[in-house]
Amino acid sequence: MLYLVALGSNQRHRRLGWPNAIIAAAWQRLAGEGLIITGTSRVVGSRPVGPSRRSYANAVAVIETNLPPPALLARLKRIESEFGRRKGQTWSRRVLDLDIILWSGGAFVSGDPDLTIPHPLMRERSFVLGPAAEIAGDWRDPLTGRTIAQLNARHRRPKKRP
């Protein structure tokens, strides 16, 4: 199975350094977990969503694994924790944030609020769509039928003013 996973960081790590270095270390950590990384985007900067004031470094990776979505999510959450993320830090600064955006199995809904595929907010986030379009532009959103490249183009289009 293939997964599109978003990576984000906006907090310095005492050993790994600044967010760009954390993203690079996260790619290595994912590969060390037996996950096959078949593509990575460039790292882009973005403004924070929510109350955090620190800018983010964001990227996207295509990961190949036999793990079903709940097992992959559990592994991603464990890696976040190992990097220093604390539970209950919604919309705040964090060393590492890992989110499943899409997977080759289509839509997936579970009882876990952290596991809905496609990610419910991906269509609104240029810091996900831009990097994702670089490496998975032909992947389709199973809910809209649009490709990532199309979603990115629509998101970047200037909004009409009333």
Rank of each mutant, 00 (worst) to 15 (best):
A107Q: 11
P120T: 03
S81D: 08
E82N: 13
I79Y: 08
I100V: 09
R75V: 11
A136G: 11
R123C: 09
P118N: 09
R54N: 15
D114T: 06
R85H: 07
V109T: 12
G111R: 15
L98Y: 00
V49Q: 14
G50V: 03
T116N: 09
S92V: 11
T65H: 03
L67Q: 14
S52P: 06
G105P: 08
T90R: 15
R53E: 15
G84L: 09
E80L: 00
N58D: 07
R75Q: 14
A136N: 07
L121G: 02
R93T: 14
P48H: 10
V128R: 06
K87G: 12
A59W: 02
P68D: 07
R75C: 13
A71S: 12
R78P: 02
R42T: 15
R125D: 04
L72Y: 01
T116H: 10
V43K: 04
R94K: 14
D112F: 05
A57K: 05
R93M: 09
W91G: 03
R53H: 08
A71K: 11
M122Q: 08
P48T: 10
S110G: 12
G137W: 10
R53I: 09
R123E: 11
V62E: 11
G45P: 02
S46V: 06
L76C: 08
K77A: 09
I117F: 01
G88Y: 04
A136W: 06
P131F: 04
P51C: 08
R53D: 13
G111E: 12
I101D: 01
R94T: 14
W103V: 03
P118H: 02
R42H: 10
I79T: 12
L76A: 02
V109L: 13
P120F: 04
G106M: 02
P131H: 03
R53V: 13
N58L: 05
R54A: 15
P118L: 01
A71Y: 00
F83G: 07
S92P: 00
S46I: 04
G137F: 08
R123G: 04
D114A: 11
L102N: 03
R123D: 07
G111Y: 02
F127L: 06
A61E: 01
D112Q: 12
P113G: 10
A61W: 00
W91N: 12
L102D: 09
V60H: 07
G130F: 14
Q89N: 14
R78V: 09
L76D: 03
P51G: 11
G106W: 02
V62L: 15
F127A: 09
N66R: 14
V128K: 00
V49C: 11
I135D: 05
F83D: 03
L98P: 02
F127P: 06
Q89F: 08
E80W: 01
A59H: 05
A136I: 06
V109R: 13
S110C: 10
E124H: 15
I135C: 01
R53S: 14
G50R: 08
I117G: 02
R47Q: 14
I100C: 01
G84E: 11
E80F: 05
H119T: 01
P70M: 10
V128P: 02
G137L: 10
I63K: 04
R94I: 11
D97G: 03
K87Q: 13
V95K: 01
V60N: 00
S52C: 03
D99H: 00
L115W: 09
A61C: 06
D99C: 06
V43I: 15
I79N: 01
V109G: 10
A59R: 00
R123S: 12
S81K: 15
I101G: 04
P70C: 07
V44F: 14
A61M: 01
A57Q: 04
